[in-house]
């Protein structure tokens, strides 16, 4: 059976909120190492990969691997019944047909319990190969969100060019064009505002603005985001969590 307790419901609420537009039905794979989710979006151009490791839970127990088939729209409805600061417990028996979600307030004088019906989901699981990325950019997640938001009204695509000198986001649309260049910077007292570039060779990828902006729903989970790029490969957009990560992969647009 699975029993996982999170000291703050907000983490789980935010994670589900961040992926629920891309993915509707998915399996939460529960193992002794933690909770994992891997799913493609409905149009199959992006992939979500979530890991909440066991040490991120204040209590965690999973003695047999379980795949919990969950409709994220329904899960969202149940998660909205709890407050962000509540203690959240997830519980499922080995052959359970529902996931029990329990909320307890910090004063410990209000307990609520909801059961979410589970589904049988036959999901294709993709193996993500080890990729040597040409560039890795770590930047404030709010900055990445702002760029995607600003460029959304101009173009359906954003081109990311990364060189040693900086990273340049460019868009071109019917009304005109735009670009934002960020140079590496460091600030010892505010590391969350730094932009860091690790580069082995210059790389350029063109990606769908709509999807990038969708990934930005995870902005509240982490102050920094890492973009990893390799030529003609999916971009990896990673939001680190205190124990685990939320990763998005997006296939690049290919020039004929």
């Amino acid at each position: 059976m699975l029993e996982g307790k999170l000291e703050q419901a907000s983490l789980f609420k935010k994670v589900v909120e961040a992926v629920r537009e891309l993915v509707q039905d998915c399996n939460f794979d529960c193992t002794e190492n933690g909770l994992a989710l891997q799913a493609m979006d409905t149009s199959h151009v992006s992939l979500v990969s979530l890991l909440l490791t066991a040490d991120g839970f204040s209590e965690y127990r999973c003695d047999r691997n379980l795949a919990l088939g969950i409709n994220l729209v329904s899960l969202t409805k149940i998660l909205r019944c709890g407050n962000n600061e509540d203690i959240l417990t997830l519980e499922a028996g080995d052959s359970a047909d529902s996931l029990v979600v329990r909320f307890e307030n910090t004063q410990q004088d209000r307990m609520s319990e909801y059961a979410l019906k589970l589904m049988d989901i036959d999901q294709e699981h993709l193996g993500i190969p080890e990729t040597e990325y040409a560039a890795s950019i770590t930047m404030p997640s709010t900055e990445f969100q702002r760029i995607c938001r600003d460029m959304q009204s101009i173009s359906e695509s954003i081109t990311i060019d990364c060189t040693k000198g900086g990273v340049k986001f460019t868009c071109e649309g019917d009304i005109g064009s735009g670009s934002v260049t960020l140079k590496p910077n460091s600030s010892a007292d505010k590391p969350e505002l730094c932009t860091k570039i690790d580069l082995s060779e210059p790389v350029s990828l063109t990606l769908s603005t709509k999807y990038l902006l969708n990934f930005c729903k995870a902005t509240g989970l982490s102050q920094q985001v890492t973009l990893k790029l390799a030529d003609e490969n999916p971009i990896l957009v990673e939001y680190p969590l205190s124990a685990g990560h939320l990763r998005f992969y997006l296939a690049p647009k290919l020039d004929e």
Binding site: M40, S46, P234, A251
Partner: peptide, 14 residues
């Protein structure tokens, strides 16, 4: 508009 491949053309089924 540019072509966009499915993500599964990059990642194999496991």
């Amino acid at each position: 508009p540019l072509d966009q491949d499915a993500i599964s053309t990059f990642f194999r089924s496991s």
